[in-house]
């Protein structure tokens, strides 16, 4: 497996002076490829079309990315434990529709309460996933594929042909995705706060580090005394809460919510995490990387429009990006493995 971003450089670097090793650590950073790609994309687009980075352009970029950033951050938690959650699109749809219903059935409900209810519903749906995965000990891919269908079916049964539009919601709620602070839309600020909290939790707390250990080797983690089931459950629960939050924000951002809201989103979210350097088999990657991946994938859409590239090329380019992310990851891991082998041989 490849190294985690915060892992200290290999034993061979001990003798080398500090500066190159810091540079080396920077070069080995898993978020580096996605950062470079993002900067290159924005630079090229701005050179060709200066309007791309106008305040309105930036605002649109961030608004488009917000929902996927939150989902990708949650998904990163789950993927790092060597699991996957395919049901996030359906959870988002259910919560978004629930938000619309709540505003219509309970007029004058405080917006904070709506956020809490949405996240609670998300937590419940995530907890069901987590329980099925940890108690029944069934692979997450299968369970969440099942709950993807079940949650979507619930949404269909609940919504039927009903749709709620922006007019059904209080203006203050819609304003969340219109008003800006320092050029950042409010919902994007919420997303950034969430990503920072999750990132700090993942990188700086014991429970967060445990997730990496579980993803690297579940059996070893168990022998080491890590409560594997509880941590994995927590990852699914957190992911559910984040998907719920994304659902509420979706209702604020987009004009209509209905039975099919958020369908097909799951693979885009997994793709964002993978592009952001989260290894699909767990154990490495970071929440910030996943969020950058989400930003990159959504920026491409706007960039292609700004560059006047045929819009039909967009999805193919996303595919190429995902494949390059995997290939870069593979090359890096092969090189790390070789380096480790050499340094081990030297130490013997």
């Amino acid at each position: 497996m490849t190294t985690a971003p915060t892992r200290p450089p290999g034993t061979a670097e001990h003798t080398v002076s500090a500066v190159p090793s810091r540079l080396g650590a920077l070069l080995r950073l898993r978020e580096l490829p996605v950062t470079v790609a993002l900067i290159a994309l924005v630079t090229i687009t701005t050179v060709v079309n200066p309007l791309f980075l106008s305040p309105q352009g930036v605002k649109d970029l961030l608004l488009n990315a917000t929902i996927v950033i939150i989902l990708a951050a949650g998904q990163a938690l789950v993927i790092i434990t060597r699991n996957v959650d395919l049901s996030v699109g359906s959870v988002l749809g259910l919560v978004a529709f629930g938000t619309g219903t709540l505003f219509v059935t309970v007029p004058g409900i405080p917006i904070v309460v709506v956020f809490l209810v949405g996240m609670l519903l998300g937590a419940l749906l995530g907890a069901i996933n987590g329980l099925l995965v940890t108690v029944a000990k069934v692979p997450a891919l299968v369970i969440t594929l099942g709950t993807l269908y079940i949650y979507r079916g619930l949404n269909n049964a609940w919504a039927g042909g009903t749709q709620y539009f922006a007019g059904d919601r209080p203006d203050a709620f819609g304003a969340l995705s219109v008003d800006t602070v320092l050029g950042f839309p409010l919902i994007t600020l919420i997303a950034i706060v969430v990503v920072v909290i999750v990132a700090v939790y993942l990188a700086g707390t014991r429970a967060g580090r445990d997730l990496y250990a579980i993803g690297s080797d579940p059996d070893a983690a168990k022998l080491f005394g890590i409560p594997v089931s509880r941590r994995v459950f927590l990852a699914f629960l957190t992911n559910g809460v984040l998907a719920g939050l994304a659902g509420v924000l979706y209702a604020s951002r987009f004009n209509s919510v209905g039975a099919t809201t958020g369908s097909g989103l799951e693979l885009a979210v997994v793709a964002a995490a993978v592009v952001g350097g989260v290894a699909i088999f767990g154990g490495s990657g970071s929440v910030v990387g996943a969020a950058m991946g989400a930003l990159l994938l959504t920026t491409i859409t706007s960039a292609l429009t700004a560059l006047r590239v045929d819009k039909f090329w967009q999805e193919a380019i996303v595919g190429v990006l995902i494949l390059s992310a995997i290939i870069i990851d593979r090359i890096a891991s092969v090189r790390t493995a070789r380096k480790l082998r050499i340094s081990e041989a030297r130490n013997v």
């Binding site: 693979l267 993978v274 090329w313 595919g319 995902i322 995997i326």
Partner: peptide, 26 residues
């Protein structure tokens, strides 16, 4: 990509899922 280059199939086929659908659009 999977058998020769040794990449994980789940990730590769998510990538080609987008790529082939994108090519269909193109």
């Amino acid at each position: 990509l999977i058998a020769v280059a040794g990449l994980p199939s789940l990730a590769v086929t998510i990538g080609t899922l987008a790529l082939y659908r994108g090519l269909a659009l193109v």
